[in-house]
């Protein structure tokens, strides 16, 4: 098969670029540990409380120390359960100090949901029977939107919460 000289140049340039992209993301994934969310832990969706992180009292923001926070969330159609405050009203906001490392752990009791904090790299599928988890630093001040970004039913667009980075 005959290839025009310029076609060879183009293929070297094109395939070379693809290899460069792959090297960059491969380096990030395997050397720097920046894998996409791929948590392997399973859970019984009808009894998520059996798992410590998803006990009612452990939901929402937990401060481990000044630099480390954990956020546990149970998703159901059409709500993110962040636990309750002292007087029993459901919490509706997540507050995290800027620069702290945050581990998000999310599961669902019913259908597939999305867990996305717009404007950040927190963007996970949440599937029944699995725990989704992602650790990151929130480096910008401001108000962010945590929303469900996988269709979960007729109230899907109402499933959201504010995230405040202070």
């Amino acid at each position: 098969m005959h290839l025009h000289k310029y076609e060879k140049i183009w293929l070297i340039f094109g395939v070379g670029s693809l290899l460069l992209f792959l090297t960059i993301i491969g380096f990030g994934a395997f050397y720097k540990g920046l894998q996409p969310q791929s948590h392997m832990m399973t859970i019984d969706p009808e009894n998520v409380e059996a798992y410590d992180a998803f006990k009612q009292e452990n939901l929402g923001v937990t401060k481990v120390n000044d630099q480390k926070y954990i956020v546990n969330v149970v998703a159901t159609a059409f709500n993110f359960d962040l636990g309750k405050n002292e007087d029993g009203t459901p919490l509706k906001e997540i507050r995290i100090p800027k620069g702290a490392t945050v581990l998000f752990q999310v599961t669902t009791k019913d259908v597939v949901h999305g867990f996305s904090i717009a404007g950040t790299n927190v963007n996970m599928m949440v599937e029944p029977g699995y725990i989704s988890s992602y650790e990151t630093k929130l480096d910008k001040y401001g108000e962010f939107t945590l929303l469900c970004n996988e269709y979960c039913g007729l109230g899907h667009h109402l499933m959201s919460t504010k995230v405040e980075v202070y």
Binding site: H4, Y6, F13, G14, S17, F21
Partner: peptide, 27 residues
């Protein structure tokens, strides 16, 4: 003889540059 494809080469290289710039933008 190979046909003259200079315009083609420049076109595809522009295309390739567009891809690379966009990719690095999202990166």
């Amino acid at each position: 003889e190979d046909p003259n494809l200079r315009g083609t080469l420049i076109s595809v290289l522009l295309l390739g540059t567009f891809i690379a710039v966009s990719w690095f933008g999202v990166f």
